[in-house]
Simulated assay, not measured.
Amino acid sequence: MLLASVLGVLMGLVMGLTGAGGGILGVPALVLGLGLSMTQAAPVSLLAVGAAAAVGAIDGLRHGLVRYRAALLIALLGAMFSPLGVFLAHQLSEKVLMGLFSALMVLVAWRMLQREKREAGPSDHGAASWGQKNCMLDHQTGRFAWTAKCSATLAALGAVTGAVSGLLGVGGGFLIVPAFKQLTDVQMRGIVATSLMVVSLLSLIGVVGAFHAGVSIEPVGWAFISASIVGMLAGRRLSSVIPARTLQVGFASLCVLVAIGMLFKAGLTS
């Protein structure tokens, strides 16, 4: 129980520091640290990620940072495609799921390091000076200009995020944050807050589906979930004092290490 609490705090801490990207660490923490299977870990991870993200999203709503219409559209499409991911997860072997998860973590790490290397100062302040984005803010109203291109872009993002969320038991923040940064001119604080709202909605929808299918969560899982909320609160406070470059490189390195551990675990189960 103590180990579950420590791992939960660490996952929530990374989520708070990275803008929901740390949610991808939930499944590895449960599989490698607590010995759960991928299918057992997925609903626990989703509920932990969803609860922790909801705390951050509420804080973002209070400060007017959440693009709630965009978040609701992404979550709606995500909810529609999440069952497809859940169905596929039950058709694949444990070894294949671990391999897919490891590949995803390496991709996330590579994207994060590449973004740090090549984007020396793009749109962190809401100014699309480096090219037209798919979704642009109306600078008079401060809201998205809801063109067909913008709506289709956010809908597609929601579909992909929902399918991956259902398949691997992750919230999807690691997809939403870089996608929003590349496709919109929203400020980074708004991107993080909007991502947290989407992740909370998608995760909780996934958990409801898992409970409906008869999945139950053991006490050790509830300890992990509760601790993740504490970690999120701490991470939100620390995020303003740790340099962004340090966070990105550190998180990318951690993703690679965890991916190696997942591959090793998959080899042992073969």
Rank of each mutant, 00 (worst) to 15 (best):
R111N: 10
W110S: 12
P28S: 07
V96H: 06
V192D: 00
S195W: 03
D185L: 04
L268D: 07
S82L: 14
Q132G: 05
L202Q: 06
T246K: 09
I191T: 08
H125P: 02
S239D: 10
A54M: 09
L76E: 02
A223G: 11
K95N: 14
A70D: 01
W146H: 10
G64P: 01
L201H: 01
M188D: 05
S129V: 14
L2D: 11
P122K: 15
S195D: 04
D138T: 08
F180K: 00
G56N: 04
A4W: 06
L196W: 02
A4I: 09
I260W: 12
G50M: 03
I242G: 03
S239R: 13
D59Y: 11
G173H: 00
I74C: 05
E94Q: 13
F81C: 05
L92R: 10
V186Q: 05
S216L: 13
V198F: 00
D59C: 06
P83Q: 09
L113A: 13
T246A: 12
V6A: 14
A210S: 14
G169Q: 04
L84K: 06
P83T: 10
V220W: 12
M80H: 03
I225P: 04
L263D: 05
A213W: 10
G235A: 06
A193F: 00
F264V: 13
L84R: 05
L36N: 03
Q91P: 00
P28K: 03
G214D: 12
A152D: 06
G50F: 00
L157A: 03
L233W: 13
M188S: 11
